[in-house]
Design a binder for these strands. Structure first.
Length: 519
RNA sequence: GCCCCCAUCGUCUAGAGGCCCAGGACGUCGGAUUCUCAGUCCGAAAACAGGGGUUCAAAUCCCCUUGGGGGUACCA
């Protein structure tokens, strides 16, 4: 049997990182088995603007390279792939169940149901709905309908059964159907409910493996029974652990964002967002926080790093392998190596994957990834001129693995701007000390007189100077770094000087000296 | 309340009765390299939730306790 998996997002705007992990496992399982991965849009509660809510989700899939074989924009033989357009299928299925006596119209009022529930609670037993509507005669039903009472359709759960299925990650799981309330499968307004629409569609799409988060485990007996009632082939189920919030075992939720800020690692991510997004013209509205896939894209993570990190949440290849290419993951992924306990996304570990995959990038790719940040921040023009592009190339090369995420290139803004900000503390520590200002005043003219302006020549000149003066190289090196870049950290100082350019170096040394001497 | 699931270093995990006084990775802490930062390289500390069984032998199997989590909708 061909493996067909699906992921069914609701169009809610941005793509949740936990949901993406579930999608990834579906995608991996399909790819691993040479099957198909299907995207279906669960938009049964309608409303909302579908296009604006769906576009970011599809774009997140594209960014990560999780291509879908059937679904929105690509179509496929089982379409339509929007549940809102599949109503006739649900209606037909519901009518079939009704006709076979496997479902019934329920006229129960919400007040009555509430009362039944309260009674059950009082007796400390599981609430199971009372099937009063089943007692109604045809005449009574006709009467109620004539009164304009709109019934819901409930699935008649065979309560004498035990539902047993072999979950690919949990093993054999057993539920007592006697404890399951008859689920509403069609609302009074005619719209289907999740459990029902899912079953009808999974059958219609010939889904072989339902891989989903474990919060759906308790939906499974209902879906199992529905499949049986409909006479469709029951898919294999695999309930993978949900992605936990940082520092807890709770499900990661976008509603609890404020609490996550207190987690040290997540705090760092939020701070990075605050530092980067305003500079590239993004506000932090719209869910650009570390719970959403878009955050990682906009900060400048590599899809391969994110896929690598996501694949390791609840799954491992063996006892050693951590760094895995997409191909390695695809060819080794298996459901029986998925763990059962919830696991959190570790931002530190993500960063270490990121550092690794960034290191694998060619200079050209690194530049290509960095350029959009430089243009968005207005550091170079859009599109960049040849000169800007050349400078950017050199800067990116000089920055080396200091660029961990593409937006880190913004740390090198001093190569592109005339005006720089001096790091006050560093200035005090490295320039405003001992003899340094005087030495800088003597050294500046020697820089000015240098024949060729490149790193090696500058370095040679500096060494000569330090020897003449009988001082340690470090003294001048630090002073030069701070005064020409404003920053205490960065690429090798001679590269910095070369890239800043002679005129700007001289002007900045002068500016730094004035700042220091003013005190 | 009821149903279901889960439980190994701070974190992600390896471990499916002897290979484990528990292995790897991230993080942390030391040290080396160095003009800073980043990186790289060495090294260290760090875990089987508790209690009962079963067995010659248990992190691994069973039971109980505790703890965590999910579900219990005309949400998905």
């Amino acid at each position: 049997m061909t493996v067909r998996t699906r992921f069914a997002p609701s169009p809610t705007g941005y793509m949740h990182i936990g949901g993406m992990r579930t999608a990834l496992f579906n995608w991996l399982w399909a790819r691993r088995n040479g099957g198909q991965f299907i995207l279906r849009i669960d938009d049964t509660d309608q409303a909302r603007n579908l296009d604006t809510a769906l576009a970011p989700i599809l774009s997140a899939f594209r960014w990560l390279g999780l291509n879908w074989d059937e679904g929105p924009e690509v179509g496929g033989p089982c379409g339509p792939y929007f549940q809102s357009q599949r109503n006739e299928f649900y209606r037909t299925a519901a009518e079939k169940l009704l006709a076979e006596g496997k479902a019934y119209k329920c006229f129960e009022t919400t007040e009555q149901i509430q009362a039944d529930r309260t009674a059950a609670e009082r007796e400390q037993r599981q609430y199971v709905n009372i099937r009063r509507s089943l007692e109604l005669t045809a005449a009574q039903i006709a009467d109620l309908e004539a009164q304009g009472r709109e019934p819901v359709i409930r699935f008649l759960v065979p309560r004498d059964q035990k539902v047993v299925f072999d979950d690919a990650v949990r093993g054999v799981v057993e539920f007592d159907a006697g404890l399951i309330s008859d689920p509403v499968i069609v609302r009074a307004n005619g719209m289907p409910l999740y459990n029902f629409a899912t079953v009808v569609d999974d059958a219609a799409f010939r889904i072989s493996d339902v891989i989903r988060a474990e919060e759906h485990l308790s939906n499974t007996p209902i879906q199992f029974l529905l499949h049986e009632a409909l006479g469709s082939t029951i898919p294999r189920f695999a309930h993978i652990p949900y992605v936990a919030a940082p520092g807890s075992k709770e499900k990661l939720s976008k509603r609890k964002l404020e609490a996550y800020r207190k987690n040290p690692q997540f705090k760092r991510m939020f701070e990075r967002a605050e530092a980067v997004f305003p500079r590239i013209g993004l506000d932090r509205e719209g869910g650009l926080d570390p719970v959403m896939v878009e955050y990682y894209e906009k900060i400048g993570y590599l899809p391969d790093a994110v896929v690598n990190a996501l694949s390791r949440i609840g799954w491992s290849l063996d006892d050693k392998t951590e760094i895995m290419s997409r191909e390695t993951i695809v060819s080794n992924f298996s459901l029986d190596r998925v763990v059962k306990k919830p696991a959190g996304l570790d931002p530190d570990k993500l960063d270490s994957f990121q550092t690794h995959w960034m290191g694998q990038l060619s200079p050209a790719d690194k530049l290509a990834g960095s350029l959009p940040y430089l243009t968005a921040a207005g550091l170079i023009s859009d599109p960049p001129s040849d000169r800007e592009r050349e400078l950017a190339g050199k800067v990116v090369a000089a920055m080396g693995d200091r660029i961990k995420v593409f937006s880190d290139v913004l740390d090198a803004d001093y190569f592109f701007q005339d005006q720089i900000q001096y790091d006050e503390k560093a200035l005090q520590k490295r320039v405003a000390r001992d003899d340094v200002p005087r030495l800088l005043r003597i050294f500046a003219p020697r820089l000015e007189a240098l024949e060729a302006w490149h790193a090696a020549a500058i370095e040679a000149e500096l060494h000569r100077f330090c020897e003449d003066q009988g001082i340690a190289n470090g003294l001048m090196i630090h002073a030069l770094r701070i005064s020409t870049t404003g920053s205490a950290a960065g690429p090798g100082v001679f590269d910095c000087l070369e890239l800043v350019g002679r005129d700007r170096c001289l002007a900045r040394i002068e500016a730094a000296l004035r700042l220091v001497e003013r005190d």
